[in-house]
Simulated assay, not measured.
Amino acid sequence: MNAAAAFLPAESKPREVVYELKSVSKTYAMRQIHALDNVNLRLERGSFSSVIGSSGCGKSTLLKIMAGLQSPSAGSVVLAGKPVLGPRRDIGMMFQHATLFPWRTTLENIVLPIEIRDGKQAAAAKHEAGRRLLDLVGLKGFENVYPGELSGGMAQRAAICRMLITEPEVLLLDEPFSALDELSRDFMNMELQRICMARNATAFLVTHSIPEAVILSDVVHVMRPRPGRVVETVAIDLPRPRTLEMITTPYFGALVAHIRSRLDKEAA
């Protein structure tokens, strides 16, 4: 078997496709920028996918289109059988910074999406669900603490709860732990895996870190420079739950090296 064949998706029982992008392209006519070209993606229920590529390859544009924050110039975006034509309740998104409101308690920040969408009474009814989520991410007892009293990692865990409170079909993650130090980032990646497995969540991560993509993902989509297009999908055949010890294994190193070589080839 050659090196490339070693990273082809293994045969397995197909799962339900939750999210699908077909021939998605994006052009910013005013700036004459062709950001994305013919992107095709399928996210299966309960899967964790990542996209990785050089800066400016269109990763953030892709995520905005998937979140319904921008419209594609061509192609279709379908979630749970319905076209994504704008922001939706069944799409959860998490950004690089927690962006918690400092004048609201942790619990009040978590139920904020419900309050904005359905009012204060509906948000109050979700307090118990918010407390269960805090317990899930290891923040039990911090319900009434304000963001200024939380560490960076704790604030990001609260942000995860805020994303999950609306029970979205898919989680879109825009480098959520890039601002953390390396040790905290490793810990939060393992926490994110645990949470996704506990809820059978379908997740899609944008990252610049090859090891982060490999340790978290079932598949890693490699993008070429602008106009962005997926040039290879790498299956990650590591057992779950993943552990940080796997980073030192030869197979993990081979995956990282393969993805890095493909990125280097596309950048040449």
Rank of each mutant, 00 (worst) to 15 (best):
L180M: 09
D181C: 10
D181F: 13
L183I: 12
L183C: 00
S184E: 12
N189K: 01
N189W: 01
N189I: 06
E191S: 04
E191L: 03
L192T: 07
L192S: 03
Q193C: 06
Q193W: 08
I195P: 01
I195N: 04
C196K: 09
N200D: 15
T202C: 06
T202Q: 02
L205V: 05
L205A: 04
L205D: 05
T207G: 07
T207M: 04
H208T: 09
H208S: 10
I210N: 04
P211K: 14
A213C: 09
I215A: 01
I215G: 00
I215M: 11
S217G: 10
V219C: 03
V219I: 06
V220K: 01
V220W: 04
V222N: 12
M223P: 11
R224A: 15
P225K: 03
P225L: 02
G228V: 11
V230S: 01
E232D: 14
T233M: 13
T233W: 10
V234Q: 07
V234P: 04
D237M: 11
L238Y: 05
P239R: 01
R240D: 10
R242S: 09
T243F: 09
L244H: 08
L244G: 09
E245N: 15
M246K: 04
M246I: 02
I247M: 13
I247V: 12
T248K: 15
T248R: 15
T248E: 14
T248I: 06
T249I: 03
Y251I: 01
Y251G: 06
F252D: 05
G253L: 08
G253A: 03
A254K: 12
A254Q: 14
L255R: 00
H258F: 15
H258M: 06
I259A: 00
I259R: 05
I259D: 00
R260P: 04
S261V: 08
S261D: 15
S261H: 14
S261R: 14
L263F: 00
L263A: 03
D264I: 11
E266I: 10
